[in-house]
Structures are given as structure tokens and as C-alpha cells.
């Protein structure tokens, strides 16, 4: 791989290193000509930043909240698009009942979850257990402590971490990672900060502080609570092995239908369309995942006609890839 980013290169392409960010050593002369409105422009969409400002920490570069989060769900690392300094947090301001509040999102945590979800989708589940099993055990032994907890409204387990989210409107608590994984599962990763019930923005609330003391009276659950480590992999591992093999089975069953449909396209061609191997795997992956979610992680043959549904979805995907039906 030819690299222009490595440090032994001239710094023309390494863009701004400066933490103050705005004016920096871009390619000579490019700055004046191309970044006229630089102060208020989001470097990703080139639109002006009027509201929903998000600031990366520690480098202080600013973006639209949606733009930078879209980039983070896509990127392989957490480097700042401008200066390539590894980001730790994302600071965002928002208004709540007349107050202006800043929330700080721990990017590393979210990033680990993203990786986990991607691996869960790409690898078979037993491999995942193998990979994360040991981590889980370690945390289990070290993190047992007495805590009075409230439940996360998504997974039903205790909210006891510092990063838990709280909806003031509905009085409900969520794990940050539960909200994120749910948002990923419904295919809308950007909207994870909405309350499941009322769609309002959730706020970061330490569920163990005195902020909502009445909740603790109502919902004291156990004196000795086991805190799960802060990622969904651990939660998945905590599901029973039967459950995991059932999920794997559902995936296989659904894939059989999709493969059946795609095989026709691959081997003999349908309506003048013949696909190659790469598109075969690509479409197989997308459609299978979609059907898997659609059937709520169960194989429901009596409710869903998988063959028809697979045909329809494959059709859509192929059109998206640019195939034209004759």
C-alpha cells in the first residue's frame, strides 16, 4: 500500500495538526481559495454549522452532530477526519426545558460496541463466545459489588454504569449500549439517543446518584447486583448457549431461502440478469440480515413466506447495484 500519510512524508497531506484547528497547514494556497467560510462550515457536508454542533475531544474540531456520527459508524477507527488525532469523547450541546446542557459521549465505548455488532453479524456466534468469553469471566469476578439498581428498559438488566441514559419524560432508564445496539438493529444508527417510548432525547444520568431518589425506593431490586461489563458482547455471552444455537439456526434457515433465490441468478440467470460471485455474497448478506430482523429473530414460516420475501428483497438489492431487468 502506497502511503502518503506516514510521518516520513512531507506534511502537505497530513492536514491540520494544530489543536486550535481552523487555520493550519493545509496544502499550500488551498486554504485561502477553498475555505472561505471555514469558520462556520462542517468539513464533512460543507454546510454551515448553525446548530447541533459536536466537538471532538481532545482535538476540538467541530462538525455537525449527524455528520460526525455518520462517519463514526462507518470508519474503522476514531481518528479525527481533519487532524487524525484519536478522539476520546464527543461533546454536544442541546437544549432541554430552557437549559443548555452539554453531554459528553464516550466514543471508545460506542466504538467497541460497533465492532462487536459487526463481528456478531459477520462471525458465527460460537466464535464470538470464544472470543469474548474470557473477558466476560474476568469482569464477572472483579465487578461484583453491592449496588441498588434500576432496570434498563431494553434488556431488563441493572442500570449501574456512569454512562446510563435517562428519559425525564417517561422516567425510564437505558443502557447506552442497549440504545445503540437497538438503533443499529433497526438500521438507524444515528437516532440512538431517543427514548424508546416518547422519542425525546435521553440525557446522561447516573442512576445511582441522588438525582431521582424516589426511583430507588420503588425499584430496589437486589442488594448484591452483578454489574455486567459495558459492552453488548458480554450481554450476548450471558445468554444461554441454547439460545445462541437457536439464533444461529434461524440464520441458517433464512439464508437457505436467500441462497436459493440467488443461485438461480448466479447459475442460469433470471430475466437477463446474471450476477457474479462478489454480488452473490454481498446481496446474500444484506438480504439475510434484513429478513432476520424482519422475522424478529425467529423462523416464522407460517407468518412469512420467505421465498417470496427473499425474491422481493433480492430484486431491490440488485436494482440498487445497478442491474436492469429486461
Amino acid at each position: 500500500m502506497t502511503s502518503l500519510i506516514r510521518s516520513d512524508r512531507p506534511k502537505e497531506l497530513r492536514l491540520c495538526r494544530n489543536t486550535q484547528a481552523k487555520k493550519a497547514d493545509l496544502v499550500d494556497g488551498m486554504l485561502d481559495a477553498t475555505m472561505v467560510d471555514e469558520l462556520a462550515v462542517c468539513p464533512i457536508c460543507l454546510d454551515e454549522i448553525t446548530d447541533s454542533i459536536a466537538t471532538l475531544k481532545p482535538c476540538n474540531h467541530q462538525f455537525h452532530k449527524d455528520c460526525i456520527r455518520k462517519w463514526h459508524t462507518y470508519a474503522d477507527d476514531l481518528k479525527c477526519p481533519i487532524c487524525r488525532i484519536e478522539s476520546k469523547h464527543l461533546e454536544m450541546g442541546y437544549k432541554l426545558g430552557g437549559y443548555h446542557k452539554n453531554i459528553k459521549i464516550n466514543l471508545e465505548k460506542g466504538f467497541n460496541i460497533k465492532i462487536t455488532i459487526e463481528q456478531a453479524e459477520d462471525h458465527s456466534l460460537p466464535e464470538l463466545i470464544e472470543q469474548f468469553g474470557s473477558i466476560h469471566l474476568n469482569n464477572q469476578s472483579s465487578l461484583i459489588r453491592d449496588a441498588r439498581c434500576v432496570f434498563c428498559d431494553i434488556c431488563g438488566q441493572e442500570c449501574s454504569g456512569r454512562d446510563d441514559q435517562y428519559c425525564e419524560q417517561c422516567d425510564s432508564h437505558y443502557h447506552e449500549e442497549c440504545l445503540r445496539s437497538l438503533a443499529c438493529e433497526v438500521g438507524d444508527r444515528e437516532s440512538w439517543q431517543q427514548c424508546i417510548g416518547c422519542r425525546n432525547l435521553v440525557i446522561k444520568g447516573n442512576t445511582r446518584t441522588d438525582a431521582h431518589p424516589h426511583l430507588f425506593d420503588q425499584r430496589i431490586v437486589r442488594e448484591q447486583a452483578l454489574e455486567y461489563p459495558g459492552n453488548s458482547a458480554a450481554r450476548m455471552v450471558s445468554a444461554s448457549e441454547e439460545e445462541l444455537s437457536r439464533l444461529l439456526n434461524v440464520k441458517t434457515m433464512i439464508q437457505t431461502h436467500v441462497r436459493g433465490v440467488l443461485n438461480e441468478y448466479y447459475q442460469s440467470g433470471v430475466d437477463g440478469i446474471k450476477i457474479n460471485k462478489r454480488h452473490f455474497t454481498e446481496v446474500n448478506k444484506t438480504v439475510s440480515r434484513r429478513l432476520y430482523r424482519l422475522s424478529k429473530y425467529r423462523y416464522q414460516e407460517d407468518l412469512i413466506n420467505y421465498d417470496t420475501e427473499a425474491k422481493r428483497q433480492v430484486h431491490i438489492e440488485l436494482c440498487r447495484l445497478g442491474y436492469v431487468y429486461i
Binding site: L15, M30, T34, P43, C67, I82
Partner: peptide
């Protein structure tokens, strides 16, 4: 990086 454009 999404901060780059065609000139870069």
C-alpha cells in the same frame, strides 16, 4: 477522510 475533497 471525509474532510478531503477532489482537489486534495
Amino acid at each position: 477522510s471525509p474532510a478531503w475533497d477532489l482537489l486534495h
